[in-house]
Amino acid sequence: MVIKELKDHQQVIQKVIDHLGGDIEAACMMITAVIQKGNKVLLAGNGGSAADAQHIAAELSGRFVKERRALPGIALTVDTSALTAIANDYGYEHVFSRQVEALAQPGDLFIGISTSGNSQGILNAFEAATKLGCKTLGLSGRDGGKMNDLCELNIVVPSNITARIQEMHILIGHILCKAVDDLF
C-alpha cells in the first residue's frame, strides 16, 4: 500500500512538472507583483483547502525560509465569529465573499482553493474579488470546475484524487512563498 501511494503521488507530480510549470511561474509573478506594490494576499478554502490557505498565509506573515519582514497574508478561514455570523445571516456560501468585500482593495490578490473547482463559497469570493479589482488565482483539481471561468489564472492539478490534489496545492503554495522570499 505504501509504495502504491508513493507512486500515485509521483505520477501526479510528474504531470505537474510536465504540464503546469508555466502556470506556476505565472502565479509566482502574480503574487510577487502584488507584494511588491504593497498589496495583500487573501486566501480561502474549505476543509483541507482551508488548512492550506492558513498555511500559506502563515508563511507570508511569519516567514517561509528566509528572514524578511512580515507580509500581509490573510486566511479568511480563521475568524470563527465572522464565519458563523455570516453563515447564520447570509448563508455559508457567502462566508468568504463578505470578508473579501470587507477586507480587499484593488490590486490585492485573492487565492481560492478548491479541489473540485466548484465550491460555491469560493466561487462567490472570486466574483466579489473581481468586482473590487483584485487579482485572482485559483488552485483546483479534476477539470478545474467553474473556477476556470472566474479567476485570472486557475492552476488545475491533473488528478481526480483529493489527496493528490491537496498535496500538489501545498507544494504550489510553497513555490509561491519561495518566489516571495526571493524578493528580499
Rank of each mutant, 00 (worst) to 15 (best):
L6S: 08
K7H: 15
D8I: 00
D8L: 09
H9N: 14
Q10M: 13
Q10K: 13
K15E: 14
V16C: 12
V16Q: 11
H19R: 12
L20D: 09
L20N: 10
G22T: 10
I24V: 14
A26N: 08
M29K: 14
M29L: 06
I35G: 01
K37A: 15
V41G: 11
G47M: 00
S49D: 04
A50N: 00
I56Q: 06
A58E: 02
L60S: 12
R63V: 09
R63F: 08
V65D: 14
R69M: 13
R69I: 13
L76H: 08
V78W: 00
V78E: 08
D79K: 09
T84P: 05
A85V: 07
A85M: 08
I86G: 05
N88L: 01
Y90P: 01
H94P: 09
L103T: 00
A104V: 05
Q105F: 05
F110Y: 11
I111K: 04
I113S: 03
S114Q: 07
A125K: 07
A125W: 05
A128L: 04
L132F: 04
C134R: 01
C134A: 03
C134Q: 05
K135P: 00
L139T: 02
S140G: 09
D143H: 10
N148D: 12
I155H: 13
V156R: 11
V157C: 12
N160F: 09
A163N: 00
M168Q: 15
I172L: 02
G173M: 09
H174M: 14
H174S: 14
H174N: 15
I175E: 00
K178E: 15
V180Q: 12
D181G: 13
D181H: 04
